[in-house]
Amino acid sequence: MFQLNRKVSGTTLDIRGLKKQFDNRLILNNIDLLVQRGEFLAVVGRSGSGKSTLLRLIAGLEEPSGGVIMQEGKAISGLNDAARIMFQEPRLLPWRTVFANIALGIRDQNGRTEKTARILEQVGLAGYGKQWPGVLSGGQRQRVALARALASNPRLLLLDEPLGALDALTRIEMQRLIEKLWQEQRFTALLVTHDVEEAVILADRVIMLRDGKVGMDIRIPLPRPRQRNNPLFASLVGTILDQVMASTDRQKSQTLNLVTSKTDKASS
């Protein structure tokens, strides 16, 4: 019998003194962070606060300038084998069918077809295997990207503002889907988002990055599935938003620096 609903246990992460510098700008300055096995952690913060950089460091797509990321007690070097990322753009291959795109995420040839078919069904796209990505809607494409990321049963799922480009209703649908799959597969999840409501709906814990450090760390004690009309939900969203907004003024000058340096690069 094929392994249906195999329980995958997530990884633990222990990040110590993590630093990342680009040119002369310090993006991350001494990040200390513990992530539990199977935890759903959301990272919020203003744009340019280094949320995505943190995610890319954990994925092994960037090298830290200092500090260490321990995964299951071992320091990450090079690409992180346990992790898969989902980006804001689906990054599907337009010249491959939906099926082939997902199969790309599975290295093991054995049972590749069955696995692909199963995950397609889990994301609600059974019967879409033969379609080209170009005919799908934005939400459907992100479902395919999610299926591809989860096809290999990763122990760590990194979500880099994956729902940022979707309309409000599709976003809610996707949030439910991500929560469902997380509950089934029990991977550790790290969600980078600028949508505080999304963070509170999904995460066990929300942290905020400010000045390259963890500026806030709040546990979300709400039972799942979470209701948006719960008064505690509203007050948590309010608290976090206040914190994010309070960090705005201090970051303004930095953001300005970022913008000018970007335009410099573009014009050169």
Binding site: A59, L61, L79, R84, R107, R148
Partner: peptide, 9 residues
């Protein structure tokens, strides 16, 4: 972006 995706996979 696609090349990076390929790298991750």
């Amino acid at each position: 972006g696609l090349l990076e995706m390929g790298k991750i996979f």
